[in-house]
């Protein structure tokens, strides 16, 4: 007998509203993709259901929302994550791209490497991994691995609906009062607004509005104040865990930063990401823990465990149909896993 998988990742359903609202109320500043607001969440769920059901010739405005259940606690929602099919679909997607200029003067005996930030639209149209949120009690379990990586399995199952280029924004440093050193050193010089106000002004709506008001010419990083320079490419505390998973997938974190908080925006090619490059359909023989998923779009389910009869049932696969799987060869200290799938 194999162990019954504990965590279930699945496409959001209409009756998940209460569970999501409870999760959202524990969310941090700067993570506006999960608003603690019933109507906003209802809209997000509706948008995801519509996207899942949309015809195969996807338009690009789809966004998909997923939830994570703990089967050991009667299917309680313990996390959520999402996918936006095409970044900046209605307008443009703004980022700063890091570049380096080397200035040399032999006569003065100087060779300077100057870091510059270029406002760009490079990532417009790429697929975004969004809205990663895990209940803090589960941060040290394998649940976040499933919550993040199963999105890539979904994309790989339906590649015609997504870009081959995948990106994900990671919130930069900000304290509980909303002080954000990168914003204070850059954006605030052009708007007399603090970060939470600027966030509120643009959340859900048009971030391009603010992007149009910041300098269009490159920013010379040495001219920024020390705090803003320090914050560049750094993470908000809540972003450490999802960021580590993305790095392990093989995303590049050195090229783009968020134009508001300076957090790193990672970017990679779908086929080169670890989960995708290791996917096998059908699953390899049982015996090892793997990411497992079905191939139903609206009824997408994924879990973590052995590819046995229990997983097959959980994924809603008929007898004889084997799931797709991806080996989970974590570079994390994958210590022994107890019967419930927790790291010991």
């Amino acid at each position: 007998m194999t162990i019954e998988p504990r965590y279930l990742f699945r496409a959001v359903q209409p009756d998940d509203l209460a569970g999501l609202l409870r999760l959202a109320q524990a969310s941090a500043i700067g993570i506006s993709s999960l608003p603690p607001n019933r109507d906003a969440l209802r809209l997000k769920i509706a948008h995801s259901l519509k996207s899942m059901a949309s015809a195969d010739d996807a338009s690009g405005e789809e966004s998909y929302l997923f939830v994570l259940e703990d089967r050991a606690r009667s299917g309680e929602l313990i996390g959520t994550s999402g996918i936006v099919a095409s970044a900046g679909f209605h307008d443009r997607f703004f980022s700063y791209r890091s570049e380096y200029i080397v200035q040399v003067s032999k006569a003065l005996g100087v060779r300077n490497r100057i870091h510059t930030l270029h406002l760009c639209h490079d990532l417009t149209g790429v697929t975004l991994l969004t809205g990663f949120h895990i209940a803090p009690a589960y941060a040290k379990t394998l649940a976040p691995q499933l919550l993040s990586r199963a999105r890539l399995m979904f994309i790989a199952q339906f590649p015609e609906r997504f870009s081959e280029r995948i990106a994900s924004e990671n919130p930069g440093p900000a304290d509980d009062s909303g002080q954000c050193p990168f914003w204070d050193g850059v954006g605030r010089r052009f708007f007399n607004l603090d970060y939470p106000t600027a966030e509120a002004l643009t959340s859900g709506g048009d971030k391009a509005l603010i992007a149009e008001l910041v300098p269009q010419s490159p920013i010379y990083v040495p001219l920024l104040d020390a705090q803003a320079q320090w914050a560049l490419g750094q993470l908000h505390d809540v972003a450490e865990l999802p960021f580590d998973i993305l790095l392990d997938e093989g995303f590049d974190a050195d090229t783009y930063v968020n134009i508001y908080d300076g957090g790193p925006t990672v970017e990679g090619r779908l086929p080169l990401l670890k989960t995708v490059s290791r996917m096998r359909v059908p699953a390899e023989a049982p015996g090892r823990w793997r990411l497992l998923c079905n191939s139903h779009r609206g009824g997408f389910r994924a879990t973590l465990g052995e590819a046995g009869i229990e997983a097959q049932g959980l994924l809603g696969l008929k007898a004889g149909m084997r799931p797709a799987s991806a080996g989970l060869d974590l570079d994390l200290p994958l210590a022994p896993v107890d019967a419930m799938g927790d790291l010991i």
Partner: peptide
């Protein structure tokens, strides 16, 4: 030769 070439 060392100063910024782009508008500051």
């Amino acid at each position: 030769g060392l100063l910024p070439r782009q508008p500051v």
